[in-house]
Nucleic acid binder design. Sequence first.
DNA 1: AACTAAACGAGACGGTACGTCTCGTCTTGAT
DNA 2: ATCAAGACGAGACGTACCGTCTCGTTTAGTT
Lengths: 210, 210, 210, 210
Amino acid sequence: MQSSSPAGRAGRPRSAAADAAILAATRAALIDLGWSRLTLGDVATRAGVAKTTLYRRWAGKNELVVDAVAELFDELRLPDRGSLAADIEGVVLQFAGILARPEARSGLMAVIAESTRDDALRERIRASIVDRQKRLILAGRARAQARGELPPESDAGEAARTVDLIFDMVAGAVVHRTLVSAEPADEEWVHDFTRVLLSGLAVAGAYPPG
Amino acid sequence: MQSSSPAGRAGRPRSAAADAAILAATRAALIDLGWSRLTLGDVATRAGVAKTTLYRRWAGKNELVVDAVAELFDELRLPDRGSLAADIEGVVLQFAGILARPEARSGLMAVIAESTRDDALRERIRASIVDRQKRLILAGRARAQARGELPPESDAGEAARTVDLIFDMVAGAVVHRTLVSAEPADEEWVHDFTRVLLSGLAVAGAYPPG
Amino acid sequence: MQSSSPAGRAGRPRSAAADAAILAATRAALIDLGWSRLTLGDVATRAGVAKTTLYRRWAGKNELVVDAVAELFDELRLPDRGSLAADIEGVVLQFAGILARPEARSGLMAVIAESTRDDALRERIRASIVDRQKRLILAGRARAQARGELPPESDAGEAARTVDLIFDMVAGAVVHRTLVSAEPADEEWVHDFTRVLLSGLAVAGAYPPG
Amino acid sequence: MQSSSPAGRAGRPRSAAADAAILAATRAALIDLGWSRLTLGDVATRAGVAKTTLYRRWAGKNELVVDAVAELFDELRLPDRGSLAADIEGVVLQFAGILARPEARSGLMAVIAESTRDDALRERIRASIVDRQKRLILAGRARAQARGELPPESDAGEAARTVDLIFDMVAGAVVHRTLVSAEPADEEWVHDFTRVLLSGLAVAGAYPPG
DNA sequence: AACTAAACGAGACGGTACGTCTCGTCTTGAT
DNA sequence: ATCAAGACGAGACGTACCGTCTCGTTTAGTT
């Protein structure tokens, strides 16, 4: 009943270890070489795997790097620091911490650049990275509502639009600060940014300020 | 008087037309092929120029694309729409308009990605694109101060930090909305965003709200 | 006594049908693709057999093709046309007929080429093809002796050397005519060739001319 | 006056040294590896040349090897040994000497095998190797006629057919002896063979025997 | 009837070579 | 000195086969 492969029983099964080794090797290559000098042949060699094995699982460099980078963002956790503002600062700092790592910096922006000409890739990024991390905003809002810091939302559509706006503002600002301005998103900056964001949301949405 | 070569009088002078043709060809190639499939040989062919001519002027693909894209952002103008909020909305809409063009989308993010491993390139991007457009924020603030919407700044350091924060928030949010979320930064979104931004700045910085 | 498997009693016996299917598939692939583009994976697919089954029986492409081609030459028969010259012409025409078939042309020359660097392969070719067809010359000589066209040989060593020389001259000339000169070894050519050969043997060896 | 390329004046000219180095490297690789394990990448490396340079000049392995082998046969000379029979024995021995060299053995038969499925290749072999060496037969006949050993030919068509037959018999027998029977074409064998051939031609064509 | 063990299909695996593409440099003759 | 043209050494691309290896599944011949 729980057969994971109804028709896929024949033949040697794919090695599960190979997947993990390839993704780890991809991140290592991103650190050593960056996106543009990363080659799939080198990743295969690092992973102790043949090129064919790699191409059997991923269509190309873009898809591989999306998956390798996506795993990094699964480390994000919503800390319980006692208030909405403090919780958000905590997540933003973690996010900045990941973006400070070279495997994330180089890989993430490159696949986003590629995705401007490849709808399937953009959808993969959205599914693997972006939408996957919106859980943090949802969890943060739920916790703030439990604390009484935020009222329960009345309009579902409005609430979804607000989540999207918050995500674009948070992710966008941190990415721009970190990668374009090339300044650290340290505690002071995160504090300033969070204050502006929450104040703005409070005024604009008639929520109580943080 | 503007002779760029004090002693370089001998030999055939460089063609001024070639530079413009190459940059235009680069943008055309970005539209047709995107960053990753753009090749310098193809750009040279499109520009009716030999590869050597191109390499004599630019060190490589990165530098060439930075220059080709930078020209796009020089189109930005600060409109006079009567209020700070309206002025900002106008600039953000223009910025979103440029990012909607394929030659900007693909090229800009790619060179930013490359710049994460190349300090000289990041400096070139900052000089050619980022710092160059901070003039808009400065001009906007000056006009708002003239209108009486904003007080004259008292602390120069504080003011500079605020400009940087605003720039990261504006550019970051529009880029993320446009390229990652892949949703249009249309008038409605820009209005919502600007309201949150200005409200937040007003509360956080004791400025009057927009 | 002729037990094919003295100790190999246990387990599922090898399929006899598979051998025939594989050799037939090999000849079909030689016709369709020629030697160099023939792949063992494709042969296995054509034969409805797994690659492992094929490798269990043959060490590689060379050995497989030798066996597939060798079967073709077993069709050769010494016709009784009434005289030594006519008998030889008949065999040579049959030989030319086989060499006109694409599965023989491509396969035979290729394995001969390979055998120049592989003694085991050359021995296999000699055993499976060359020596196996010397029966025709021996039978032809015996019949000619019975007819009184040739005297019984007195010197066994001399006779063996002559058989080898005849074989090299016949096989060599037909192969060269057919494959290198790419002209048909038709009745006229075979007649001319046979006349020169038999005349030469008669004079050189003091045999009566054909 | 001797401009070899009317329109091909622009650009860097092809290196003449590269051609010679590539052909020599091809022969060296044939010696070390044989046909089937020879790779164009290895040839390029041996020649100190990039793969692209090689592919710019030759369409593939077949064409390259034909040219590399063809040069070997240009060494053939018709010696003046005083009689037609002796002259022929001399040439046949030289021919056998070349076929004893591994670069010729492996390469020649392989390209002939390939040519069974590639008309352009067969034409190239004919032009570069076969027809090119028919000069030896023509020169031998002319010298024999000058000596009075052979009468001047009366029928041009008949003469051409005879040349072709002789060529097929000589080349075929030596190749078969050397490569298939794998026995040396030494002086004794060449003497026997030449005697049969010339005797046969004399009787069949009413020429005086050697 | 149950057991045993080799053969079977399927297909994933680590490799190697393919022929193509682009890179950035170099070498021509012409301007 | 710069230009267009294009050959050059270098090296990655993605594909095709190689021959081997694991799987789960027959299929005979014992027991």
